[in-house]
Design a protein around this nucleic acid. Structure first.
Lengths: 337, 337
DNA sequence: TTGAAAGCGCTAACAG
DNA sequence: CTGTTAGCGCTTTCAA
């Protein structure tokens, strides 16, 4: 594939390549007339700038990396897609994506890969808030623009987009309480995910606010799989521990719980309500009894871009945290919705 | 961020940069001893090659683009993720992703963007099998490596990964028939998506094979939204058209249908069974009555990579089509599953 | 086995 | 306003 270069243009116009370059860049130091001539020919010949050459010269790659824990949750993909759109279009950045499959080792490999690709910055949502801290530190000290989002690392100082999981959680649990639920089980996320500890905090707060005693029996840490959540519920049933609601960390867990309760002929939501937070189309379509919360994807994306570009432009800029206070919209679907 | 270059290495070792380059490349024309010295220092100083320089020199970008119609269906993301992993790892390619949001104009913009980024090849799953054909042609004639997958364009000659929708469809419909269903509605996809016409063909074939008369009333073209599918079913109900099964084009449609039937107090699957093809975790967890089919994601990904690299290496290579005959696994969930 | 030199396409001093 | 020159980091002849 033969591409037109500024040299081609220069030759045809009897100009030096510098002038052509300037004309194309809209430098100002070039006569209106030549500028027009150059641009017209460029247009006509279908010239497009060779970014590799520019980047080599400029010592940047004009590309950024996004690393997310997994790709099945539509939330992440929505953010990625939005960031991509914005960064491709307005800023001319290439966006490289990698997913870690909830595995810190893969995450590490992904970080290394991005570094090898010499991306100008990395948007990161972590698998675990402890496993790769030394690597985050190394990158940061090396001057890599590194911005965390959603799954952040609380004890690591960096720019972050934090989602107010605590507030969301309080709201959701209070919503259950308002419906008369008092024995609310919390299928929590693993403690190495910060979001999960925040949600737990919200859960406790909601109980306290409403004068319901906190019972540790009702809080069950659990990994992210549907089966794991189902197993926890089975345990409760087997031990005759009574409950009237289940608040899950993830949608997947909620699905697992729902499946199990159905199998046990336990009426949803008459006997037990199920809740989780999520912003997916699927879940609201699907869960007869699911209360959900919407994530402000666009806000998150644009905040992430802002902080990232800030760091890219000025690597020594101060770290900033933007807390996205979700437009919390409780959306209760009826049993047949 | 200061990076070590071969010149740095050369200086410290009193060698020319050519020799260093050769040593690093494992050229062979360099003494074992210098080779070792170079490599050791490189290792020690954390040298990594600057791909931009290489690519500029080599006149390629070592990057490919993937354009998919949407990102919500996990199937696409699984393929993307797999291609990414493989291409990043083994082949050192960067992978750029873009989604067209089921809109041919956006798809066109995405194609243009990939071209501007000078990707070495494009993996494409189209929105419509007619709207952008002139653009596909232009790219192909320009020498761009272009490989279609899943959502292909039958009348356009190019390398493709085709999924045997016909066979899958026959199987699924026959499965319904075996259960005693005779009045099977087909909520079809729009005719500008090839896969949808293939599935329709399969539907007809299954009926014919089993001696069931084909009734056009039962075939309802429908766009991809859940609401659209629900509306079609409403129409059938309002007009007292009797049916005992619904075979949908997409999972989303199936969800819409399910929702509507529930609302109308129609028992699933006792009165009406719902089926669609899909390979998502969600759907099997979620649909009490859904029969699904698994997509061989890895096969698709590796076939796509193979054809793409083939075209990149030799742009004049003949077009090839690989038909992926899904490992068709009917997975029937019980009502409480 | 090694080095010197050219060049990929572009930008940015510097000079005129 | 325009041209000359140098150089980003690397590979690849061509000579030695």
């Amino acid at each position: 594939m033969k591409y037109i270069t500024i040299i081609d243009l220069a030759r045809r116009l009897n100009l030096s390549k510098s002038t052509v370059s300037r004309a194309l860049a809209g430098d100002g130091n070039v006569s209106k007339e030549t500028q027009d001539r150059v641009r017209e020919l460029a247009q006509q010949l279908g010239y497009t700038r060779n970014d590799m050459a520019v980047n080599l010269r400029q010592k940047q790659t004009k590309s950024i990396g996004i690393i997310i824990p997994e790709i099945v949750t539509p939330f992440f993909m929505h953010v990625v897609s939005e960031v991509q759109r914005e960064l491709n279009g307005r800023h001319g950045y290439r966006v490289l994506l990698a997913q870690s499959n909830e595995n810190s080792d893969i995450e590490l490999a992904n970080l290394r890969m991005m570094e090898e690709f010499r991306v100008d910055g990395i948007l990161l949502s972590v698998c675990s808030s402890r496993n790769n801290i030394p690597e985050y530190l190394r990158l940061k000290e090396k001057g890599m623009a590194l911005v965390f989002f959603d799954r952040i690392v609380p004890q690591f100082s960096a720019s972050k987009i934090e989602i107010n999981e605590y507030a969301k959680s309080v709201l959701l649990v209070e919503h259950l309480i308002e419906q008369g639920r008092k024995k609310i089980v919390h299928i929590a996320g693993p403690e190495y995910i910060y979001n999960s500890t925040e949600r737990l905090r919200g859960y406790k707060k909601a109980l306290a606010k409403n004068g319901i005693a906190y019972d540790p029996t009702y809080v069950i840490p659990c990994d992210l799989a549907a089966e794991a959540a189902a197993a926890k519920i089975t345990y409760l049933l087997d031990n005759n521990i009574d409950f009237d609601a289940v608040f899950c960390f993830t949608e997947t867990q909620a699905l697992g719980v729902k499946k199990l309760l159905s199998k046990q002929k336990i009426a949803i939501p008459d006997q037990v309500a199920i809740a989780c937070m999520s912003g997916t189309t699927l879940s609201t379509l699907v869960h007869p009894t699911l209360t959900s919360v919407e994530q402000p994807v666009d806000q998150i994306a644009s905040a992430a871009i802002q902080l990232l570009l800030e760091k890219i432009e000025n690597p020594t800029a101060e770290d900033r945290t933007i807390v996205v206070d979700a437009q919390i919209k409780i959306r209760e679907s009826s049993a047949v919705d």
